[in-house]
Amino acid sequence: MTNWVEVCAADEIDEEDVIRFDHEGRTFAVYRSPDDQFFATDGLCTHEKIHLADGLVMDDIIECPKHNGRFSYKTGEAKGAPVCVNLKTYAVKVEAGSVFISLA
């Protein structure tokens, strides 16, 4: 069963940007792409547990603020050294101006 959890209002995330979302002891990163779609991944880099929401979003890439490890936030794919483990991604929907993330 899908468990949709409300993150924030859609306009609280700028285009080509990311916010941190903490929920029940877990941390996530929620993104708004330049073409105005929303995405979500685990919040911590797979290299050294750094909050990705402090990093830079460029097109469909999130870059870790610490060591510049890069992931596609759309697919979670690690884009090369120093990161080699993919990020887990989560389904996102926007309803009535709010962003929801799917936590199974």
């Binding site: 750094i50 909050h51 402090d54 990093g55 830079l56 870059e63 603020p65 610490k66 510049n68």
Partner: peptide
């Protein structure tokens, strides 16, 4: 503190 300046330095 933390990664407060990381994104701006990257930019």
């Amino acid at each position: 503190t933390g990664n407060a300046i990381a994104r701006d330095i990257r930019l």
